[in-house]
C-alpha cells in the first residue's frame, strides 16, 4: 500500500483515458503525458495503460508501506527516495517504510508515479482515470489528499526489477529527430488546419506565425494562450459540435484555447487547428508561462511521428524484460 504524506491540489489517478463516451458527455480524461505513463508502466512490467499517479503540484511525498516496485516518468527532476536522489525515468524497488519525494521539476510540468501492478482503483467505463468534472473514476472521483491510502494491484508474474533498478533513455532524446526544437527554447507543436481555418485571413498567418504564451488560466481541461488576438474575417453562428483533446478553438476574445485531456465534449467556437496526437504529450508537459508556437503539419508527417513513437515503445517493451532476465540470470 502507498500512503500520501504530502500533496498539492489537483494530483490525480490517471491512465490512458476513457475514450468512446463523448456522445454521452463524458470527457476522455487520461494522463496529460500519456507517453510517460506508457514508459513508466513498461519499466515496472505493467500493461502500458495501467493507472498511475499524475503529479502536477509539488512537493509530493508518499510512503510505501510494503516492498513495492515503482517507476517515475515524465519529469526532468530527480525523484528522492529516503533522501537519496534517483535518476529520472527510472524504476526501483522501495522497501517497506521508504519515503518517495517529488520536487518541482526544473522545466517540465508533470511527473508520473507508476507502481508494479498498477494503481488499483475501480474501473469506470473502461478506465481508472479521475474525471474531476464528473466526480468519478480515479481515487473516489477526486484529487489526492494527505492521508489517502492507495493500493497497488497484483504485480504480474513476470521478472522482478533488478536490485540496481532500471532506467530508459527518455523519449525527447531518443526521438529528437522526430520532435522539432527551436534554438530559443520555444516549444514547437505541430498542428493540422481544422474546420474553420478558412475563416482566418492570410491562411491563418497570425495564428501560425506568432509565439503564444500559456496563460495562468490553463489546466487539464484546456490551455488558454495569450498573445495578439486573432479574429475570423466573418462572424459565424455555429452549432455546438464534438471536440476532442488537441482541438484549438478561437473564442470571441481572439486568444486560442487548446483542449487538453479533460477536454469539453462539445463546443461552438471556431476551430482553427488541431494538435497532432503525438505532440500532445509535449504540450501536456509545458508549464504555465512557457512559450509555444504551432507548426503546420501534414497527415503524412503525423503518421510518421506516430510510427517512430510506436517503434520506441515496442523496442522498450521488448528490451526491458530481456535486460531483467539477463540480470536475473547473472545475479
Amino acid at each position: 500500500m502507498i500512503e500520501i504524506l504530502e500533496t498539492g491540489p489537483f494530483n490525480t489517478v490517471q491512465d490512458l483515458g476513457r475514450p468512446g463516451y463523448r456522445d454521452i458527455g463524458v470527457s476522455a480524461s487520461g494522463a496529460m503525458d500519456s507517453l510517460a505513463v506508457r514508459i513508466g508502466n513498461s519499466l515496472v512490467g505493467n500493461d502500458e495503460g495501467a493507472a498511475a499517479l499524475e503529479i502536477q503540484t509539488f512537493p509530493f511525498r508518499l510512503r510505501f508501506t510494503e516492498r513495492t516496485g515503482f517507476a517515475i516518468a515524465g519529469t526532468d527532476g530527480n525523484p528522492v527516495l529516503d533522501g537519496i536522489e534517483l535518476p529520472a525515468w527510472c524504476a526501483f524497488t522501495a522497501e517497506a517504510g521508504q519515503i518517495l519525494e517529488l520536487r518541482q521539476p526544473p522545466k517540465l510540468a508533470r511527473a508520473y508515479v507508476c507502481v508494479a501492478g498498477g494503481v488499483d482503483v475501480p474501473s469506470v467505463m473502461g478506465s481508472r482515470s479521475t474525471s474531476l468534472r464528473g466526480g468519478f473514476g480515479g481515487y473516489a472521483g477526486r484529487p489526492l489528499v494527505k492521508g489517502d491510502q492507495i493500493i497497488a494491484g497484483a504485480a504480474s508474474t513476470n521478472i522482478p526489477l533488478p536490485a540496481s533498478g532500471l532506467a530508459v533513455v527518455e523519449p525527447s532524446i531518443v526521438l529528437q529527430d522526430v520532435f522539432p526544437s527551436s534554438p530559443d527554447g520555444t516549444l514547437l507543436i505541430r498542428a493540422l488546419p481544422a474546420g474553420e481555418h478558412g475563416l482566418f485571413a492570410d491562411d491563418g498567418k497570425a495564428f501560425w506565425d506568432q509565439t503564444w504564451r500559456i496563460s495562468s488560466r490553463s489546466d487539464r481541461t484546456g490551455y488558454r494562450l495569450s498573445g495578439d488576438a486573432i479574429v475570423p474575417t466573418e462572424t459565424v453562428e455555429m452549432r455546438s459540435h464534438g471536440v476532442v483533446p488537441g482541438v484549438i478553438q478561437v473564442p470571441p476574445g481572439g486568444e486560442p484555447i487548446v483542449q487538453m485531456s479533460d477536454a469539453n465534449t462539445a463546443g461552438g467556437y471556431p476551430k482553427i487547428a488541431g494538435v497532432i496526437e503525438c505532440d500532445l504529450w509535449r504540450l501536456g508537459q509545458a508549464r504555465i508561462g512557457s512559450r509555444v508556437q504551432f507548426v503546420r503539419s501534414s497527415h503524412a508527417e503525423a503518421r510518421a511521428v506516430e510510427k517512430a513513437v510506436e517503434r520506441y515503445i515496442a523496442d522498450l517493451r521488448q528490451t526491458i524484460p530481456m535486460v531483467k532476465r539477463a540480470l536475473k540470470a547473472m545475479a
Binding site: 533488478p162 540496481s164 532500471l166 530508459v168 520506441y312 523496442d315 522498450l316 528490451t319 535486460v323
Partner: peptide, 10 residues
C-alpha cells in the same frame, strides 16, 4: 546502456 534501456550502476 542496452538499446534504449539503462542499467544503473550503484
Amino acid at each position: 546502456r542496452v538499446g534504449h534501456v539503462l542499467v544503473p550502476l550503484k
